[in-house]
């Protein structure tokens, strides 16, 4: 069990107005990012990608290929930034670790019975220990949504604390699976629980259910991070995941971060995109910006 205890009354709800959140996002989306600032954003987004493969069909070969892509997103442009991390299932951690050794790219593993989280705490802890032992730098855990929705907030808190402890020096990203949380108030509450329980990152979604990441949900989480930072001075990272496929979306997310939390969060240390197909769209847009010519997908390797 965790040594930390929550001193918070989790039954208290922080009110959030849905229409207000969505209007704020609309307004942020009206930012027009052009020229230098666009290239800068595209490269920044590329550096923030957690290049992800989480399929039952994943093979060692596929993971190795993905690692190659992570190292050199576009072979013709060796100067482009590397992605931040590779995100895989637990049994692929050692494969990825070997491939990325010394590259500066982190290996992230999902754990705690991803994506459902429907396992006993004991197994979740063991799984966490195992992926860390196999070399994972980052652990993406899922919260027990069922317990959360039933109002068992202490349970959720304790579980995150326990997994955090099991992570040791590995970074913990806590997936809230916001698509199952119903309301922005719940997203906010789950964010607060995760941060107080020690999360290094909070993350929207597993990518396995719809809706996955949305900008309003992300804004609510960023605002939770901001309040937590105001209070504790600890910077918690943010990772929207799932459904972010286009460069334009990625830039919109960066605008959200910039105008909510500021520049300190505009680094892979504090902001990530959980995505796979986003990489190539970013590349296409970068090349377009450089060459002035609209690009076609066949000129970019799929993985």
């Amino acid at each position: 069990m965790s040594a930390t205890t929550s001193t918070y009354d989790w039954n208290k709800t922080i009110p959030i107005d849905q229409v207000g959140v969505e209007q704020r996002v609309d307004r942020l989306n009206s930012r027009s990012i052009k020229k230098d600032s666009k290239i800068q954003a595209l490269k920044l987004a590329l550096s923030m990608i957690d290049l992800t493969t989480l399929e039952g069909m994943d093979t060692e070969g596929k993971v190795i290929q993905l690692c190659q892509k992570a190292l050199r997103p576009h072979i013709e442009q060796p100067d482009l930034p590397k992605v931040a991390a590779i995100c895989v299932y637990p049994n692929m951690v050692s494969v990825a670790k070997k491939e990325l050794q010394g590259s500066g790219i982190n290996v992230a593993s999902v754990a705690t019975a991803f994506p459902s989280g429907m396992a006993t705490r004991k197994i979740k802890i063991e799984e966490t220990r195992q992926v860390v032992a196999d070399g994972a730098d980052e652990v993406d855990m899922v919260i027990s949504r069922g317990a959360f929705l039933k109002g068992e907030y202490e349970y959720v808190f304790d579980e995150i604390s326990a997994v955090k402890e099991a992570c040791g020096s590995a970074h913990l990203k806590v997936i809230l699976e916001t698509g199952e949380l119903q309301t922005y108030e719940n997203v906010r509450k789950a964010s607060d629980i995760a941060m107080h329980a020690g999360a290094d990152f909070i993350k929207t979604s597993t990518g396995k259910i719809s809706p996955a990441a949305t900008q309003p949900v992300t804004l609510v989480m960023l605002e939770a991070i901001r309040d937590y930072f105001y209070k504790t001075d600890r910077m918690v990272g943010m990772k929207p995941a799932g459904g972010i496929r286009k460069a334009k979306q990625a830039i919109q997310y960066l605008v959200l971060v910039k105008e909510t939390l500021g520049a300190a969060w505009l680094t892979p240390d504090y902001f990530r995109f959980g995505a796979s197909s986003l990489t190539n769209d970013l590349l296409m847009q970068i090349i377009k910006q450089q060459s002035g010519v609209y690009q076609g997908p066949d000129y970019f390797s799929k993985d």
Partner: peptide, 10 residues
Amino acid sequence: IKTTWHPVGF
């Protein structure tokens, strides 16, 4: 005449 606005959402 007083007009009142309120958001509609969950």
